[in-house]
């Protein structure tokens, strides 16, 4: 019995390592090759760099105009987060607290968006009519809009756990709706707002379709589009492409390491109960 048990534990550990290696090797490959010279990187192998070329990163930042696209990405992600935390949380709060017929309907109507596809072609028409096409504001608004359903869903669920008595106490103290929300309720939403902010950041940072469709000028490109176009120009220089890939992924990797708990809870919430 115990011997059979040991064997199964050993097999389990071996499988776990094998899967982890399969997950890790592609990322490691990029890291190793980002430090090679052009000739050695052309074979894109797992052999270690003969000499370390840290200057690859500087070359990429300069040639790929990464600073510019970094700040673009930051602007898009930042505005989407701001809108999600301010506007979307206010909406979710009222929809969750005042369950009139209309509000029930609106809640369903909004979370239907979790499933629905974006019609990029006719969206372009709307972008042109509203003069948002090929503008930074337009992209930021799109990033915010696409997050509305998931943010409303997460915040709405969380507000259900906050006791109504708090609202009542606030009203007795003579709070206006705005003060009630911002001074009393919103601070209690911190855990879910952190989750929403992180998920919004990751989604915004990784977005590719919206800028591909609606940004013509490369000066407004986010990092994803910049790295793709850099690959188009320098696909023979995998050391530089690797460095670009690494720099583009770094922000999400850092956020992942810092906020792993929030990311996993946000991405799996509500998925196991029921």
């Amino acid at each position: 019995m115990s011997r059979k048990y040991t064997v199964s534990v050993v097999i389990k550990n071996i499988i776990a390592w094998m899967v982890s290696i399969v997950m890790m090797v592609p990322l490691l490959l990029i890291f190793i090759n980002s430090l090679k010279d052009k000739a050695q990187a052309s074979s894109m192998g797992m052999d270690l760099p003969k000499t370390l070329h840290f200057e690859n990163y500087l070359i990429v930042i300069e040639r790929g105009k990464l600073l510019r696209s970094f700040f673009n990405s930051m602007f898009y992600a930042g505005s989407a987060i701001l809108i999600a935390i301010l506007l979307t949380s206010m909406a979710a709060y009222v929809l969750a607290r005042n369950k009139t017929r209309l509000n029930r309907f609106l809640y369903f109507f909004i979370i239907m968006g979790l499933a629905m596809p974006v019609n990029y072609v006719s969206l372009m028409k709307v972008m042109q009519l509203t003069h948002l096409n090929n503008t930074r504001i337009g992209i930021a608004l799109l990033y915010a809009t696409i997050q509305v359903p998931i943010s409303v869903f997460l915040i709405y669920g969380f507000i259900g756990t906050i006791p109504l008595e708090l609202d009542e106490a606030g009203i007795l103290d003579g709070c206006s709706p705005i003060r009630l929300y911002f001074n009393i309720v919103m601070p209690l939403l911190k855990p879910v707002l952190v989750t929403v902010a992180i998920l919004t950041f990751m989604d915004a940072w990784n977005q590719f379709s919206f800028p591909l469709y609606y940004l013509n000028s490369s000066t407004k490109w986010p990092m994803t589009l910049a790295v793709y176009s850099f690959f188009g120009q320098f696909h023979k220089e995998w050391n530089l492409v690797s460095a670009d890939i690494l720099l583009t992924s770094l922000p999400v990797l850092i956020i992942y390491l810092l906020g792993q708990k929030y990311i996993i809870s946000g991405m799996t919430v509500g998925s196991v109960k029921g």
């Binding site: 506007l87 206010m90 009222v94 005042n98 509000n103 509305v148 609202d167 709706p177």
Partner: peptide
């Protein structure tokens, strides 16, 4: 207490 204008921006 829970005014509708809270929803309007998102909507």
């Amino acid at each position: 207490i829970y005014p509708f204008y809270f929803v309007i921006g998102t909507l």
